[in-house]
Design a protein around this nucleic acid. Structure first.
Lengths: 205, 205
DNA sequence: TTCTTATGTTAACTTCGTTAACATTAAAGC
DNA sequence: GCTTTAATGTTAACGAAGTTAACATAAGAA
C-alpha cells in the first residue's frame, strides 16, 4: 500500500519551501512541517537535501539569481554612469521590498555558511559582481588612472551600502516610505542626498 | 539539601545571556543551556523573565541604551551640523563593528516584537530620537521653513540609512574595511561620497 | 533475472521552549 | 513568636524540532 514514487519530490519540496519562506520567513520553515505539507514522510527531505541548511541554501541560490537578474536588467537601459548607479540602487531596494524574506535570507544569519555550499557562494559572488561591474564601469573610452579607479571603487561601495541600508530599514519598518510618492523616486532622493552640502540648499537651479 | 537562594539569579542570568550572545549570537542562546551555565534548574529563568523573548528583550534594551549613549556622546563635540552628521555615522558603524551580535539583535528578526515589550519600544524610540535630533538639529538661531524642515528630515533618513548599510555590510563581511586606514575615516569617506558628481572629480580644491 | 542504487518509510534520540505540580524560602500580618 | 502568603526553586512532563539508523520498495544496470 506504499504509494512511493511521488514524482519529483525534490522540486515539490523546493516550491513548498519557497511558499513557506515567502509568507513566514525562515523561522516558520521547519523540515517536518515542510514534509507534512508536501505529503511525504518526515525523513524524506534528507534524501534530496543536506538537511535544513541544504534546503535554505537551495532557496537562497534561487533568490540570488533572481536578484542578480533584476539588477542586471536595471543596469542595462540607463545611458550614463550616474543614472546607472541610481537605477541600480532603486532596483536593489525594490527587490528587497518585494521579496523581504528572500532579501533577509540572502543577507541574514540564517543563510547557510558560504564555504559549505560552493554553489551558494558562486550565486552570491555573481550578484555582487553584477553590482560592482555596473557601478564601476564608466564610459569605456575613458582610460582611468589608479586614483580614478580607487575612487570608482569607493563610489561602488557607497552606492551599495546606501541601497542596502535603505532596503534594510524599509523592510524592518523603521523607515516608512511616503505613500504619496512612488518607492523608486523616494529611494532616488535618498541616494542622491549630499550630506556635505548645507542643510537648506536647494538642488534645483 | 536544596541549596536554593542563589543570590540574585536574575542578574546572573542576564550576564550569562550577555556572554553567550556576544560570542555566539542569539542562535546559541537557549534557555536550558543558559540555566545550566548559571547552575540553576531549567525552569528557573521563567521566574525572572517572560520566556526566551523576555530575556532577549532585556538584553536588547541594554544594547539600545549603550547604543544611544555612544551616539549621544558622538554628537556632542562636533561644532557644526555637518560634522555632527559625520561623527554620528562613524559612531553608528563603530558600535556595530564592536558589538555585531548586539547590533544584529536590536535590528534583526530575532528581536522580540516591540509591541509586546513597552520598555524595549521605549529604548528603541529613544535611540532613534537621539539620532534624529542630532541630525535634524541645525543651528538654533535659524528658523526653518517647511521645505527646509522636510529637507532636514530627508537628510536624516539619508544619513541613517547610509550608516546602517555600511554597518550591516561590514559586520556581514561583505565589505572589508581597508587595513591601512582606521575604520572611522573609511566610514567618513563613504558617507561623504557624492554620487551625483562625475566619477573622476576630486574633492580637494 | 539478479544486484545495486535511489528513494521512501518508520522509529528512535537529542535538544528545545514551555507549563504544571510541588517544595522551599522570605516577608508580612497578627 | 507564629502563621499565612508571595516569591523563588525544583522536578517532570508535553509537544515540536533536527537528525540519524534500520528497514522497505522501486528502478535500472549487469
Amino acid at each position: 500500500m506504499g504509494k512511493y514514487h511521488h514524482g519529483d519530490v525534490r522540486n515539490v519540496l523546493l516550491q513548498q519551501a519557497e511558499n513557506i519562506l515567502t509568507d513566514e520567513g525562515p523561522a516558520g520553515l521547519s523540515l517536518r512541517r515542510l514534509a507534512r505539507l508536501t505529503g511525504v514522510s518526515e525523513a524524506a527531505p534528507y534524501r534530496h537535501f543536506d538537511g535544513k541548511d541544504g534546503i535554505l541554501a537551495a532557496v537562497a541560490i534561487a533568490a540570488f539569481e533572481r536578484f542578480a537578474e533584476q539588477l542586471e536588467s536595471a543596469a542595462e537601459s540607463p545611458p550614463n554612469h550616474e543614472e546607472r548607479i541610481m537605477a541600480l540602487g532603486a532596483a536593489y531596494v525594490q527587490f528587497a521590498v518585494e521579496n523581504p524574506q528572500h532579501f533577509r535570507l540572502i543577507f541574514g544569519r540564517e543563510r547557510p555558511p558560504l564555504d559549505q555550499y560552493p554553489e551558494l557562494r558562486d550565486a552570491a559572488d555573481n550578484a555582487f559582481d553584477v553590482l560592482q561591474r555596473a557601478v564601476t564601469s564608466v564610459d569605456r573610452k575613458a582610460e582611468m588612472t589608479l586614483a580614478e579607479a580607487a575612487s570608482a571603487y569607493n563610489r561602488a561601495l557607497a552606492a551599495w551600502s546606501r541601497a542596502h541600508g535603505i532596503a534594510m530599514l524599509v523592510i524592518d519598518g523603521m523607515i516608512v516610505p511616503p505613500a504619496d510618492q512612488d518607492l523608486s523616486s523616494f529611494v532616488l532622493g535618498l541616494l542622491a542626498e549630499d550630506l556635505t552640502m548645507p542643510v537648506n540648499s536647494t538642488k534645483a537651479p
